[in-house]
Amino acid sequence: MMGNKHIHINHLTIGYKERGNKKTVASDINATIRSGELTCLLGANGIGKSTLLRTLSGFQTPLEGEIIIRERRLSDYTDKELAGIIGVVLTEKCELRNMTVEELVGMGRSPYTGFWGRLSKHDKEVIDNSIKLVNIEHLRYQMVHQLSDGERQKAMIAKALAQETDIIFLDEPTAFLDFPSKVEIMQLLHRLSHSGNRTIFLSTHDLELALQIADKVWLMNREVGVQTGTPEDLSLNGSLSHFFLRKGIRFDMESGLFRISKQATVSTRLTGEGNRYTMAQKALARHGIDASRENSSDWYIEVTDEYFNVHHANGETEQTSSIEDLLQSVQNLLAALSR
C-alpha cells in the first residue's frame, strides 16, 4: 500500500491558456513526491513554482502530461473528493475579520460536515488535535486578524491538518516570517510529514533551511527543468552549486550550505586555534582578505586566547582585543602598504 501514496508526475507541462494561446511555464516535468517526506521546491522568482503548486492542487489544469495520486489521475477527481486528499496553505493573506483561530481550523472540517456545517464530537476532537500539533493552544480563542504573520501561518497549517488529508501543499509558508519562526514552521512541517506519514510539498526561498531540513529538494530551473534528490546527493553531483552558480555565492561542500564569497584581493597568514580563529577568518573574508594558516606573508595575524595581534613586516606588534579593532588596524596597515 505504501507505494500507492506517492504522487507521480509524468511528462507534465504547466502554464496558462489565454484565448487559445498556450503560455508554457515549465515543460516535461517527471518526478515523484514521496509520502512521509518533506519535499522543498526551490527556484528563482517567476520560474513557475506557484504554477506547479496550483497545478498539483488541481486549481489549474496541466497543459500536457498527468499527475497520478493514489493510482488515479488528478483530473479524474471531483472537487469534493480532492478536498479529502489534498490540503493547501497559500501565500495570499485571507482578510478574515471576526473569526477565531478555532473557527478557522474548524473550516478544515467542511468536507466532512453536513449541510449546515455543524461540527460533530469527532470533528471537535480533530480540531483539538490539529491545534495541539502546531502548538497554538494559547491562540485558540484569538481573532485571526490579530495574529502575527507566523501565528496566522500556523493557524492555516492547523486548518490544513484538520482537513485530514494525506497530502499538504504549501506555497511559500515561510515568507514574511522572522528567522526563528521560519525554523519553527519548517521543523513543524518536517515532524508532521514523518509522524503522520503525510506527503508535504512546499515552495520556499529559504535555501539554507530547505537544505538542512528537507528530505528531498526539487530544483526548478529554466535550462534543466526540475532536478530532484536529497540535498546531499544534489550537492555531491554538483547540481546545487551549478543551480546557484552566480558571482558572490559559493557552495561550501563541508557544511553543505551556500556561502557568500567575496573575491579576495589580499592574502595573509593567520595563526591560532578554535572559534576565535574561525571568526577572525570569517570577518577578514568579508573584507576581501583571505587569511589562513596555509598562507604565507610578510605580515601576519596571531589569534591568542585574549588578543588578536597584528604583526607588521617591520617587527612591530599591534594588540587588539576585539575583531572590530583588529579589522581597523588591518585596514590601516593595508592603507599604509598601498601608499
Binding site: 492542487s57 480532492l82 478536498a83 497559500l90
Partner: peptide, 8 residues
C-alpha cells in the same frame, strides 16, 4: 482558492 480546496 481555500474554498475550492475544501470542496466548494
Amino acid at each position: 482558492a481555500y474554498a475550492r480546496n475544501l470542496g466548494l
